[in-house]
Write a protein that binds this DNA or RNA. Sequence first.
DNA 1: ATTATCTTGTTGCAATTGCAACAAATATAT
DNA 2: ATATATTTGTTGCAATTGCAACAAGATAAT
Lengths: 209, 209
Amino acid sequence: MDELFKNINDAEKNILLQSLEANIMNFKKNNIILSSIKDQNFICILVYGHLQIIKNDYNGNKTIIEDLYENDLFGTMISSITTNLECDFYTKEDSKILLIDFDDVINNKSSLPCFNQFLKNMLLIISNKILENNKRIEILTNKTIRDKLLSYFKNNVKNKKIHLTLSYTDLADYLAVNRSAMSRELKNLKNEGFIEVKGKTIYLLYDIL
Amino acid sequence: MDELFKNINDAEKNILLQSLEANIMNFKKNNIILSSIKDQNFICILVYGHLQIIKNDYNGNKTIIEDLYENDLFGTMISSITTNLECDFYTKEDSKILLIDFDDVINNKSSLPCFNQFLKNMLLIISNKILENNKRIEILTNKTIRDKLLSYFKNNVKNKKIHLTLSYTDLADYLAVNRSAMSRELKNLKNEGFIEVKGKTIYLLYDIL
DNA sequence: ATTATCTTGTTGCAATTGCAACAAATATAT
DNA sequence: ATATATTTGTTGCAATTGCAACAAGATAAT
């Protein structure tokens, strides 16, 4: 939200939101909401509250794919959700959501200076998302777990160190591989002397990348 | 290019390009060019010519990941390339390229009406890219070839039919699986009575999705 | 028409992976 | 502090996959 309205003051922001026909919606705690945003292209702002995006696979397993708090942005273009993916938006607390229809942004005729700034802000947010997505696709494109791991390392190494921000369980999800198989492959890399693992830090011992 | 300058006339376009400090570059046929665009965030337009983006894997295999012709757009945010991916830009013909630095777009203070339109055009191009990427990630996230295929079908079905625009070889690349293993899995789906394949059209026989 | 090139189908085999089940270690809640 | 839940490590085994090699079609080039 801060990003989306960067360099735009509150007065301008309100005019802008009106001109974009932004809608406010309120939801009670512990509800599944907003199935419509999966079909329509909305930019959503969680004004306050707590929201989770939950994916259901056909075995009935649920995974939290995103945890959203005050001022977080979400929507088809911002979150990693597709129209076909079975996922729900679940309110963990009473929540207020601001919805902007992407088509309204594109069709808006406004020439307010702040609209210009708003477009640039959106562009920046979305372009970061693209870079992230490209990165993930590059990683997922590898055929073996080892190559996925190495590709992940390559994308996240700094001073021959990789500091994991994800848990190993989540990393396996990110790489789309079985957790225990990944654990096994990490062990192999360790035994073969390529890496050293200390908790959430992985040290690269050779220039294997 | 048409998309990028939609609703902008030629006079406006030239002013805009100046204000964005766009650069023109010319290249001779059969050269590897533009290693810099992998590091910097450029929006590139192939004004005329023929360009290929070629990926080299560490076995020395080359794959054409994009074939670009007159007026096609490319760049880190538009093409499926990442900073770390080993890929080259190869001129198949003499080519003229227009380069716009993304940072210049974001930092541009212009309030020309056409700049506004330009931003909206970019936003639209990039947002389509995101939707495409999200789709691919959803597909790649499946663990088995069968599930990847089904997920691909689900995303491309129309009237219980999938019409392939890709060759089977390219489809295997898109799904990041071995071609012959994919071929085998398609045969299995056929034998189990789930699909019927006639050339590049696949018929879904059951509601398996 | 003939050759060359690219795509597709097929198969055996070895390597990789997912899965399940469990124990140990951590983290969280009460 | 104790109980509860979550994460991590490990392993055997079965299933899936990649790989290689080759034949058959299909397409493009001369």
